[in-house]
Amino acid sequence: MSRAERAQSTGQRTDQRTDQRTDQRTDQRTGEQAGRRTGPADGTYARTPSPLWTFGLLRSELVTTFRRWRTLALLAVLAAVPVLVGVAVKIETSDGSAVGGDGEGPAFIAQITNNGLFLVLTALAATLPFFLPMAVGVIAGDAIAGEANAGTLRYLLVAPAGRARLLIVKGATTIVFCLVATVVVAVSALVVGALLFPLGEVTTISGTRIGLAEGLARALLIALVVAASLIGLAALGLFVSTLTNSGIAAMATTVGLLITVQILDQIPQLDALRPYFFPHYWLSFADLLRDPVHWDDLLRNLGLQGVYAAVFGSAAWARFTTRDVTV
């Protein structure tokens, strides 16, 4: 993004925020701002904003995030991955040969030609190691640091959002992005798969068969699990974002940490530590396609993401609520 563009988008964003917040502010907190600044030391206030205010803030935050060109570009790249995979498989198998016969390539790629539904799984398996978490890292890293960088953080805090509340809203937006990004990949893959390949009964990786409807339900569940797998990274990115005033630095740090941890996860000598790395169980989503479903690693993955979210979420809170916001 060029400097001019950024300046422009920042300007727009500030305007937008100010507009929306002014509306809500007028009836909810007239004249309270001055009182807040010099507020009573025991922390009591005459009025607290209604809970709806949080939803207003969340809505405004979601609109701002998903209207950004950067976000749309990230989603477009993610949507392009299944198209690429689908077309490549189609071209390679057009002469009747099999693809990935030796078990090479992303998981499930050998099954795509027989059932387009497997393109959803292949696309998720192909994007989960890097594309998806990178996109989440960008959004999460930008959450607080980007505002500080653009000089809009002060304005947000001047509004009676409260720091913890603002952080919660930022975290919720990041998690919504995790879900949207995953769903974009899955839906794009489903559309491409249905267009290029036949759909039908699904053979689970245990060799049993399930109907197409159950197959679709499992694919949806897999998309949800993949989205949940990204929560740990989202919390980590949010924490990094509270440490710095530079959005770029926060994004780079988050994505750098992701790559570092993924490399460490490949080192056999770290066997004792590996189960505690957040990407360790990422591919466990495939266990949903076993028959019966093998829950052990899936639950471990979700638990691990929960622990990461709790640790880095509370660390982000500790940092953000105590730091001096000067920009």
Binding site: G162, R163, R165, T321
Partner: peptide
């Protein structure tokens, strides 16, 4: 976690 309490603490730590 009450947001306003936290704001208050932030104020207490501020240079004022």
């Amino acid at each position: 976690m009450a947001p306003f309490k936290s704001d208050d603490n932030a104020t207490a730590g501020s240079p004022t």
